[in-house]
Design a protein around this nucleic acid. Structure first.
Lengths: 335, 335
DNA sequence: CTGAAAGCGCTTACAG
DNA sequence: CTGAAAGCGCTTACAG
């Protein structure tokens, strides 16, 4: 391994001078710099970040907690975070928690001993119980894609989930739907509230039992709840599923009852629908600005890490979801 | 930050002794060890891995290249690698290449300067052009999920893809199918060969044009190729798609032609089918032993890194895929 | 603008 | 079994 010292000898300077040209912290006479750069190139010198970390305390590495990488939403988010990080010369230490507190705890220790510059936690509400630990982590922690139970004390990338639900509602209202159902995950009350607001504002409020909460965000639970809801409200012409898997379950439930989508029932999803769910058709869906979420999270984290950026004072404003029309919504059938 | 020196003072020993109990490299008198452990607990000492890395050269961190994390197969593999790594006290530096050589090159430099212990590369055949660089990486490189164009000089986790294709063929043969089609990705000639062998062995060889190669592993290309194949061979009662997305395309094509699955056409996929593709139904599929692949890859990598394990002499034998029956295959309809 | 010195927190022979 | 010393490759004040 070629070291800074080797470069220095080759260029006829001391290693501090090499350090100065590499980091750019101190100006170096052009002629000297040229000699140093030449030596670096000839020797194929690459700085040892481990040594630099020990000296500076920064490893140029950031940890990311996600529940899993198997869900399309998190898969995309991970890649966006990776990109945002790379732009700033950092790399990603990925930790999937599987929503397991013990796992998260082990990961946290591993990150601490590796001197990561920051930790990003995406959508792991269940970890709240383990958060006290985080409070005295020796690196900044930034929360992201966190819809409920926001603990304070941490910078957080906020998304206006209520607005997302509202967009879904307005979309269906614009198509002319008056009777709609909501198939919700327990954690998604905010999205549901936004959806109801859209209908309420138009003077056609949703009855309380139009909202069904599926026990788990899994397919089976969603299917049962959807069948239930559709049977109880045969007059409903539209359905908002607060989660992609629930949307698939809703489509399936409709089919099982002999109803077509979007002919007999319009369906709006939230987050990303797995490609090909409808074999070639796409679901109308509320999508989150993942790229922006990742950029903000990385910005907050690295800002806090460098201690520069004034503490999250000018808190970035909430990011807005968008409605992407697909093949699963249409005007209600005239009766 | 509490250091080894702090612990030493507290326990009334020198820091070398603390190091000895922490690493376990040298035996320490029980009484002394107890005092040291007590001091560690009281102070909440956590070893600084960065300093250790600088001294030992090992960062207990391993890099993983995958094309993307958005494909179910790679998402699962990433998590399996993470698990296998954690069992051995290592962590994962994730790099997605997006099949971009330049990106991979940048990641490689980043990993080198971070002193990773090893690099795992999963299924990125396209990177072969950039492999010369890898040859003189200063850490071991292990290849994984690499079906074609195996460069030599690298340890590699091998999977018997031919066997996977053969299993698919035998499954269809066992159900009684005699006319089958193959919808293949250009890179999957080995799987295709195995499939053909199954039919040939039974004395019902597949005609050459029963195999269609889809330009890209994308949905659109697959759909076109599938429509083409089904129209050219209306007598076919089964189809083997060498990739999950192609399988979805095949199902869609069948439907578009008014044929049901598996009633009129049995479909066997390869790799994982995205959940819910058939809305509640599962595809019969050849699956790869991802957990074992990850374990072997991590074992080879860490073995090579520690220089211990005799060079990949007792090369692990190829891992075997398995056929998991689903709802998309059945006996051919009697005519 | 350049050079000498100390230090980041650990490990590793090497004597006692 | 324990302690003193040197070193891993860098950065950071601090003099010149």
């Amino acid at each position: 391994m070629v070291t800074m010292q080797d470069v220095a000898e080759r260029a006829g300077v001391t290693k501090q001078t090499v350090s100065n040209v590499v980091t750019g912290r101190v100006a170096v006479r052009p002629a000297t710099e040229a000699r140093v750069r030449a030596a670096i190139a000839e020797l194929g010198y690459v700085p040892n970040l481990v040594a630099r970390s020990l000296a500076t305390g920064s490893s140029r590495t950031v940890g990311l907690f996600v529940p899993t990488v198997s869900a399309p939403f998190y898969a995309d988010l991970v890649e966006e975070v990776e990109d945002a990080l790379e732009e700033r010369g950092h790399r990603l230490l990925l930790c999937t928690t599987r929503r397991d507190g013990e796992r998260a705890r082990r990961h946290l220790a591993a990150l601490a001993s590796r001197s990561v510059d920051a930790l990003l936690i995406a959508g792991d509400q269940g970890l709240t119980g383990h958060l006290p630990l985080l409070a005295d982590a020796r690196f900044p922690v930034v929360l992201c894609a966190w819809e409920a139970a926001l603990p304070d004390g941490f910078p957080v990338v906020t998304v206006d989930y209520e607005h997302g639900g509202h967009l879904a509602g307005r979309h269906l209202r614009a198509l002319g739907h008056e009777r709609a159902l909501v198939l919700a995950s327990p954690a998604h009350t905010v999205r549901t509230a936004g959806f109801r607001r859209a209908f309420r504002e138009d003077g056609v409020p949703l009855p309380d039992d139009a909202v069904r909460t599926a026990a788990e965000p899994a397919f089976a639970g969603g299917l049962a709840a959807a069948l239930d809801a559709l049977r109880a409200h045969p007059e409903a012409t539209a359905l908002f599923a607060t989660h992609d898997v629930l949307a698939v379950a809703a489509v399936e439930a409709a089919r099982a009852l002999g109803r077509t989508v979007p002919g007999d029932l319009s369906v709006v999803a939230h987050d990303d629908a797995p490609a090909g769910v409808l074999s070639g058709q796409t679901l109308t869906s509320v999508v989150l600005p993942k790229r922006e979420m990742a950029r903000q999270a990385v910005g907050l984290a690295l800002g806090a890490a460098s201690g520069s950026a004034a503490p999250p004072d000018p808190l970035p404003r909430p990011l807005l979801p968008a409605l992407v029309p697909g093949d699963s919504t249409a005007a209600p059938r005239r009766t």
